[in-house]
Design a protein around this nucleic acid. Structure first.
Length: 366
DNA sequence: AATCCGTGGTG
DNA sequence: TCACCAAGGAT
């Protein structure tokens, strides 16, 4: 492979692994090599920072310490343990995959590429990560860190935003990886990317493999990796309503099982026209048509902006009072302020609830 | 291949 | 402030 010509592979492996063994962070998923816990950590770490994951991981493996316990756990509780982490299909896929492992593999996480990669939510990166870390199998685990680090070390100018580029790096890692310690090698690359070879201003003076780095030798480390820009998120105008009955209960709705924020609960809301003057009428029609709800809508007591990776919600939030009763179903419920804690809400609707409670409090103290 | 899918931290 | 981003996968 031409990218590795004149590259000292064995010395690089040794320098990287020695550094990792000496300097690696003390992280909760590094206390043992339980394949289940390695798996959970890798799913949580997808597109999510280590500091964010730590408390979620600790709580999750305490609540669901084994494959069996997660396989038999209630869906609502599993989702609740993920609340606020984002990318909620990860936990739905993890739950389904763990059930499959419990049934098909007698609770043993597979140790082959075919077995692991066929599990829901487990792609090329996670396959390599579990195999190398939990089982010591020399498979590449190419994530954003690995592409950034190797782009610099080998001075590779391919766009890491392109799917094809990941395959190139997998081929490179197949030749580069330590067969003796693939776990430390793969984790070392990622740890280096997280601590030293960071985006923007890499700490090259502290780098254990500086002597191997072609980008550093050429002084172009800040130019790498090449990464194409992503499309800007599109803004959406939304209306939402916190509806209360005479008992103080609130109306909540469960989102569909597919798509954005699947299976999470929310306050009734819909996309609305921008004209502020007609928002309340639109919302009133929506409530009647969608839920058969008759209500007296009050004031728009707050506006909330919530930014997703590909969307921006600008939500105008009304309060309101129910007329008569609401037909409760699997997807529409009336809950009091204690019961509501059992339901999983996206952060955007947590903001709505918080704002509503402050609004009520302020009204009450007038 | 390009887009969808969350959230919170950062310079 | 805001553009970028962080241990990706599914479609």
């Amino acid at each position: 492979m031409k990218q590795l010509e004149n590259f000292s592979i064995e010395q690089f492996q040794a320098d990287l692994i020695n550094w990792f063994e000496a300097e690696q962070r003390d992280l909760p998923w590094r206390k043992d090599q339980d394949p289940y816990k390695v798996w959970v950590s890798e799913i949580m770490l997808q597109q999510t920072r280590v500091e964010t994951v730590i408390p979620y991981f600790t709580n999750f493996v305490t609540s669901f310490p084994t494959i069996e316990s997660l396989a038999h756990a209630d869906e609502e509780k599993v989702l609740k343990a993920w609340e606020g982490l984002g990318y909620y299909s990860r936990v739905r896929n993890l739950h389904a995959a763990v059930k499959e492992v419990a049934e098909k593999y007698d609770g043993q996480v597979p140790n082959t590429v075919e077995g692991i990669s066929s599990l829901k939510g487990v792609g090329p990166y996670t396959t390599g990560a579990i195999l190398s870390i939990a089982y010591g199998v020399p498979e590449p685990a190419v994530d954003g860190n690995v592409m950034r680090v190797l782009s610099r070390i080998l001075s590779i100018w391919d766009d890491i935003g392109k799917p094809k580029t990941r395959q190139l790096f997998e081929e490179i890692v197949r030749e580069l990886i330590s067969k003796e310690n693939p776990s430390a090698f793969n984790q070392g690359l990622m740890e280096l990317g997280a601590l030293i070879c960071i985006p923007g201003n890499p700490a090259c003076l502290l780098c254990p493999v500086q002597g191997h780095c072609r980008a550093f030798a050429e002084g172009v480390q800040k130019e790498l990796p090449v990464k194409s820009k992503k499309k800007a998120p599109t803004a959406l105008s939304m209306s939402a309503v916190v509806l209360k009955n005479e008992k103080g209960q609130l109306v909540i709705h469960k989102r569909p099982s597919k798509g954005l924020l699947a299976n999470l609960w929310e306050f009734p809301n819909h996309e609305s026209m921008i004209e502020f003057s007609t928002q309340k009428e639109q919302l009133s029609d929506f409530l009647k048509n969608e839920f058969g709800i008759e209500a007296k809508l009050g004031e728009a007591f707050t506006t909330i902006q919530h930014v997703f990776s590909h969307l921006i919600w600008n939500i105008t939030v009304f309060d309101g009072t129910l007329f008569g009763d609401v037909k409760e179903t699997d997807t529409v419920k009336l809950v009091d302020q204690e019961e509501i804690k059992q339901y999983t809400f996206p952060v955007s609707h947590q903001k709505i609830l918080k704002s509503f409670l402050e609004h009520e409090k302020a009204k009450g103290s007038e």
